[in-house]
Amino acid sequence: MNRENKKRKYDKKYYRTHPCTDSFTCKVCGWPVVSAGAGTNHRNHCPNCLYSIHLDNKPGDRESECHGRMEPIGVWVRKKGEWAIIHRCVRCGKISSNRVAADDNPMKLTALAMRPFGKKDGLYPGCFFPEGEL
């Protein structure tokens, strides 16, 4: 086990190839997050509010000194048809994407995907062209 701890400390790409099983408390909404039930070994965002923390420069290296909150700004579809959440760091503006986990809040996910079509006070927010002018 000591050898494993040493590896974790000095191998920069340790978390790229090894699962991270630490549990954490979401810094944004306070949700207690455990690693089980995600359907993935690399959970990086809170399943309730979908926020993440900017820890990595490249996947798994834990080298970033920013540690800002990463806001979910959208979803996109990967080649295999699975969804991935696009995160943007509130502090430095870095954009990254991560696969959705099995236990992510489906209501929040759908709200993210439907954002460009949302209506607020009878207007389409963000839509710079009128409805009939497509």
């Binding site: 700004i73 959208g74 979803v75 996109w76 579809v77 696009i86 943007r88 954009i95 994407s97 954002r115 460009p116 949302g118 607020k120 207007l123 927010p125 963000g126 839509c127 710079f128």
Partner: peptide
């Protein structure tokens, strides 16, 4: 282009990969 980010009202950004 992979996604749309609704930044604010009347401001859309295209997310590219």
């Amino acid at each position: 282009p992979v996604g749309i980010w609704v930044r604010s009202e009347k401001e859309w950004e295209i997310v590219q990969r």
